[in-house]
Simulated assay, not measured.
Amino acid sequence: MTTTYTKSQVASHTTDAAGMWIIIDGDVYDVTKFKDEHPGGPKILKRVAGKDASKQFWKYHNDGVLKKYKPKLQVGTISDAKL
């Protein structure tokens, strides 16, 4: 069963200590450990931590990237998502 979170719960995850979480299309991803591997650098992920990063993600990535990393990084879904 998938864990569900509210957007306000994700918004509290913006630092290494709290964990850096982002939302992409209603799914929640923990990018804390991935940030240093990110080809664009950790700064970009820090900028969107705690937020819905769907628009920024799709601007630079295709669905193959999401398929590759989803199993490793997804921690849940948004319960108050308007999809």
Rank of each mutant, 00 (worst) to 15 (best):
V48T: 04
L45N: 05
I24E: 02
D16T: 13
A53W: 01
G40N: 08
I44Q: 13
K68M: 14
D27N: 13
G40P: 04
I78E: 00
T4C: 07
M20R: 15
D36A: 14
W21H: 03
G64Q: 14
N62F: 08
D63E: 15
T4D: 07
Y60M: 13
H38I: 07
K7L: 11
G41C: 09
I23P: 01
V48S: 02
A53H: 02
D63L: 07
L66S: 05
K46R: 12
L83C: 02
A49D: 06
I23C: 01
A11Q: 08
T15N: 09
A17M: 04
V10G: 01
L45Y: 08
Q56M: 14
A11E: 09
I24V: 15
H13D: 05
M1G: 15
S79C: 01
K46L: 06
T4K: 09
V65Y: 12
V28M: 00
M20C: 10
K59T: 11
Q74C: 09
K35S: 12
T77E: 11
W58L: 08
P42I: 05
P71M: 05
Q74M: 12
T77D: 07
A53G: 04
H61M: 08
V65H: 11
L73V: 04
K35R: 15
T15L: 06
I44D: 08
Q9F: 03
D63R: 13
I44C: 04
K67D: 13
Q56I: 13
M1K: 11
V10M: 06
Q9Y: 06
W21G: 01
L83P: 10
H13I: 01
S54Q: 03
Y5K: 03
W21K: 00
T3W: 03
S54M: 03
Q9P: 03
K55A: 15
S8E: 15
G64L: 11
T14N: 10
Q74A: 13
V48C: 02
H38D: 10
T3H: 10
G19V: 01
Y60P: 00
K35D: 12
F34R: 06
F57I: 08
A17K: 14
K67Y: 03
W21Q: 01
L66C: 08
V48A: 04
A81K: 07
A49N: 02
T32G: 07
G26P: 01
A53I: 04
G40A: 07
N62W: 04
G50P: 00
K59V: 07
V65W: 11
A11I: 03
K67Q: 14
M1Y: 13
I22P: 03
V31I: 15
Y60E: 12
D25L: 00
S79H: 01
K55F: 07
R47I: 06
D16A: 14
I22L: 12
K67R: 14
T32K: 05
Y60D: 14
P39L: 12
Y29W: 09
K55S: 15
Y29N: 06
A81G: 02
D80H: 03
A49I: 02
N62Y: 07
P71T: 05
D16C: 05
